[in-house]
Write a protein that binds this DNA or RNA. Structure first.
Length: 624
RNA sequence: GCACCCAUAGCUCAACUGGAUAGAGCAUCGGUCUACGGAACCGAAGGUUGAAGGUUCGAAUCCUUCUGGGUGUACCA
């Protein structure tokens, strides 16, 4: 991933600012490091090397700057580490640090500090999540479906990742504008119009316009495919040409085509609405391509007037990111192509629309950053677009292509939009919900068989469980994968009840709630007047450390636009909780003090899971 | 041809952005406990991080070359 800054330089994205205890440790070290460092300018870099320990045996945190510092000072790393440790101010928050290996400084919080910190966390509705000191305004481009066909699994990633980023950035106090750049004006409507005029089944269209339009779209595209297989250049395909002509007529304002477009649009939007509802995704704006259509001639004129765009081979183009328009054969082989704003036939392209969109977003919301949650194949397009938009004068905001890998079929081949066997989103959600319910019922039967008292859910509750579990499974599967790599679509894995899945987290949440129900305990007390926390077992200590790390995970996810850092955190939290349950009885704790302390931890685990899943757009149920 | 992305355990994925012995989940094998919710826990086995060089105290991570896959590449979006 890269960020285009105002100066046009390519820079890595911002680093994680660290969780609230990291600054605390850095403050502790700052004077000693400053005294030992020959170059004061490097002190912040050294302090940045105070980070969570990679291995719990080494403590809670580790300071890794002694090696670099020793080299700069011409000393031996372990000696430098020892000197710095000796120079630390006295504190009751950490145990005496130890020096190990080539000069690592290992740090461990005292139990007293952890107990105090987690008790403070209990009264904090934000669970430690900081509000940004300097809130920024983000415009996030997400989802962007082609409205002429039903959503399929390929649209999941942009929608789900984009929605999670909206929620995460908002949670940290930023202003976020979500904008769904609908594909509602391109060739797909030429295809629909041509298909409607020549191949429609009138009865089917009357009965269900949505389905008939979808059929026509697929039908025409299959005809294109044939041309490809015959090794004909797609542009020579007469059918495609005919569709392009219908598109051009629409764009030129042809009354018949415009009327058809207006007739088709509501049906197309109706096709999308229930899916967004089911996914629990609300996008602030849906300014599609058609919205920008009237602005396109002005965009091209303006860019030509400013000397950024010009004619080449009958089209109007903007140079590639390097500022070059290749003209000779040799250049065309070596250089990236320019982007076309207006084709030879006068039609505008999506590059022009994207430029109009940038101008509109910049003028309307004055964002500090514009994020495009769009698949990796469009990297070249955005590279060119961002570079030239900056030259055009829209250089205040950072442009980020938050790209993600393709969804692959079981054969590890990308899902092609035109290929058969593409799973429609609605069917996928139905299947996932059905599987979720089956597993729930199997689990209930199993528990009953083993003599447990089992709560009998009503049919309405079962439907709710199925939906929450099913949709959650699909979302979590996508979000838990680092977004840059391709990923293999696997429904069974998504709906698994073990491992790093939504179901496992939702179940962990339900377990927390169950303990309070079982003991008939009011949880409010643990949030308003929390009892003292007693850390008797290592499992409790590990759990507390994990609870305190929630802000760190969220901030890291926001810094690099990586929601999977939140799911990774959840998985660690869930594992720590499992061990805790195993080692520490809660309701049957040896003393009332310990029971209260453990109830506080259970309540915090439940709240943290709910909050973290909420940041990913995933819901929980109280019982399952 | 050129450009971008990727390659980690049998499979699916991590690795806190250069840190200590590369970790999980499936699958395989073994074990624990009448179980505050067993959708559990513990353990074993599984690796020359695609290959070869280089950078340095230290590399899955950074640089070069190569191999193998994906994607894009002047009038689709």
């Amino acid at each position: 991933m890269f960020v285009y800054r105002a100066n046009g330089r390519r820079e890595p994205a911002g680093r994680c600012p660290g969780h609230p205890h990291q600054p605390h440790l850095r403050t502790l070290f700052a004077p000693a490091v400053a005294a030992a460092a020959p170059d004061p300018a490097k002190v912040p870099d050294y302090l940045a090397a105070v980070k969570p320990a990679g291995n719990p045996e080494h403590g809670d945190y580790q300071a890794n700057f002694a090696m670099a510092l020793a080299k700069a000072a011409g000393k031996k790393p372990p000696e430098v580490a020892k000197e710095i440790v000796a120079a630390l101010p006295a504190t009751a928050d950490i145990e005496p640090p130890t020096v190990a290996g080539p000069g690592f400084i290992n740090l461990k919080f005292t139990s007293a500090f952890l107990a105090r910190a987690v008790r403070d966390l209990a009264t904090d509705e934000r669970l430690g999540l900081p509000l940004a000191a300097a809130p920024r305004t983000y415009v996030i481009d997400l989802s962007g479906p082609n409205v002429a066909k039903p959503l399929h699994v390929g649209h999941l990633r942009s929608t789900i990742i984009g929605d999670a980023l909206v929620r995460i950035l908002r949670a940290l106090g930023h202003t976020v504008v979500g904008d769904n750049h609908l594909g509602d004006w391109g060739l797909q409507f030429g295809i629909l119009i041509y298909g409607y005029k020549h191949f429609r089944d009138e009865a089917a269209f009357q009965a269900d316009p949505v389905r008939e339009l979808a059929r026509l779209y697929v039908y025409i595209n299959k005809q294109f495919k044939k041309a490809d297989d015959d090794d004909e250049a797609p542009t020579d395909d007469p059918l495609k040409k005919a569709c392009q002509e219908e598109t051009a007529k629409l764009h030129a304002g042809d009354p018949e085509n415009l009327a058809l477009w207006k007739q088709f649009m509501p049906a197309c939007l109706e096709m999308l609405r229930p899916i967004y509802e089911r996914l629990d995704v609300k996008i602030d704006h849906a300014l599609g391509e058609s919205f920008y259509n009237p602005m396109l001639p002005g965009i091209v004129e303006d860019m030509q007037a400013k000397g950024i765009a010009f004619e080449s081979k009958g089209a109007v183009v903007i140079p590639n990111a390097k500022g070059i328009v290749p003209r000779t054969e040799e250049e065309m082989k070596k250089e990236e192509p320019p982007a076309i704003l207006r084709k030879r036939d006068g039609a505008f392209t999506y590059t022009t629309t994207d430029l109009a969109t940038i101008r509109h977003r910049a003028d309307t919301w004055q964002p500090d950053a514009m994020l495009y949650v769009v698949g990796a194949p469009q990297a070249l397009h955005f590279k060119t677009l961002f570079a030239q938009a900056s030259r055009w004068g829209y250089d205040r905001a950072d442009y980020v292509h938050v790209q993600f890998g393709s969804m692959l079929g079981a054969d590890r081949k990308p899902f092609g939009a035109r290929k058969g066997g593409v799973v429609e989103l609605m069917d996928l959600l139905d299947d996932a919900a059905k599987l979720g319910l089956e597993k729930y019922e199997a689990s209930v039967a199993d528990r009953r068989e083993n003599g447990h008292k089992v709560y009998e859910a009503t049919d309405a509750e079962k439907r709710e469980i199925a939906e929450v579990v099913g949709v959650g499974a699909v979302k979590y599967a996508d979000l838990s994968q680092s977004r840059t790599t391709d990923y293999v679509f696997d429904l069974d894995k998504m709906t698994a009840t073990v491992g790093n899945t939504a179901t496992y987290m939702q179940y962990a949440y339900a377990r927390c709630r169950s303990i309070f129900r079982e003991g008939d305990i009011d949880d409010a007390r643990f949030r308003t007047a929390p009892p003292a926390v007693v850390l008797a077992e290592p499992a409790e200590r590990a759990l507390v450390l994990q609870l305190l790390r929630f802000p760190e995970a969220v901030e890291a996810a926001a810094a690099d636009y990586l929601p999977h850092l939140v799911t990774g955190y959840l998985w660690d939290l869930a594992k720590a909780t499992s061990v805790f349950y195993e080692k520490c009885h809660v309701l049957k704790a040896p003393t009332p003090e310990l029971r209260d302390s453990r109830l506080l931890l259970v309540d915090l685990v439940g709240r943290t899971i709910r909050r973290a899943l909420g940041l990913l757009g995933i819901r929980v149920v109280e019982r399952m």
